[in-house]
Computed example of a mutant assay.
Amino acid sequence: MMQPEPAKNFIFSEKIDSDYLFSLYADDYPYIEEVYSITLSHFNDDLESIRLAWSSGDLEDLKRATHKIKPAMGFAGLTAIQEQCRQFEDLCQKAGSTALLSETYHQLITTLAESKELISSEYERLKAYNLNTLCP
């Protein structure tokens, strides 16, 4: 009896929109690994920019900082988080003060922190996968 071949495709976390990732990168896993690496290298600074804008109460800076991190979420396959960032940007545009955004802001910050952990985990898994696939 023949053994089934192991899956040749990397299986992303269910929290990641893998269809969207494949639409961007096909199955270029080394490139996806590179995108994740770049995203992680900027993540802390981008998140800190959002926190600083919040603490200063500057809605325009808050909108700008959120706008900056938004595409990274899409590039990492976190399309729902990308949309959450877009919605928060819209709220910043419409709000008269940060006080009106408190609950939404805290949800976004929590979600972004969780996203970093997910991207980091997937990055490590991708590195191992690429190492095993490219250098058997």
Rank of each mutant, 00 (worst) to 15 (best):
E89F: 08
L91M: 14
F12A: 10
F43D: 11
G77K: 00
I16D: 08
S13N: 15
E117V: 09
F88V: 02
I50S: 01
P136L: 07
I50M: 07
S102T: 11
R86E: 10
I50D: 04
D17F: 12
L47K: 09
L91E: 08
P30K: 07
S120M: 08
I32P: 04
D17P: 07
A113S: 14
Y123M: 06
Y31S: 12
Y20F: 15
F43K: 09
M73V: 07
K70D: 01
Y36T: 00
L91S: 11
Y129P: 06
Q84G: 00
D90V: 07
S37R: 12
E114Q: 11
T110D: 10
L108N: 07
F10S: 06
E103P: 02
D61I: 01
L108A: 05
E117K: 13
H42E: 15
Y25W: 12
K94L: 12
E103K: 13
L47A: 07
S56G: 00
V35L: 11
E60V: 11
L118D: 04
I32W: 05
I69H: 04
S102K: 13
P6Q: 15
G74Y: 04
Y105R: 01
S97M: 03
E122K: 05
I11V: 15
A95I: 04
S37Y: 07
Y105N: 03
M2E: 13
R64N: 10
L112N: 00
Y25V: 11
M2C: 08
E48D: 09
L118S: 07
L91Q: 14
D45E: 14
A65M: 01
I119E: 06
E14D: 14
L21T: 10
Q84I: 01
E33K: 13
S115D: 05
A7T: 06
I109C: 06
D45W: 03
Y105F: 15
H106E: 10
K15A: 13
Q82F: 06
S49L: 08
N44K: 14
Q84M: 04
I119Q: 03
E103C: 02
G74K: 02
A80S: 03
E83K: 02
I11C: 08
L47E: 03
A113H: 06
Y31Q: 11
E33P: 04
G96F: 04
N9A: 15
F88W: 00
L40S: 10
E117P: 00
A7P: 11
G96A: 09
A80M: 03
S55D: 09
S37P: 00
R51F: 00
D90N: 07
R86A: 09
A128N: 08
E124M: 10
K63R: 09
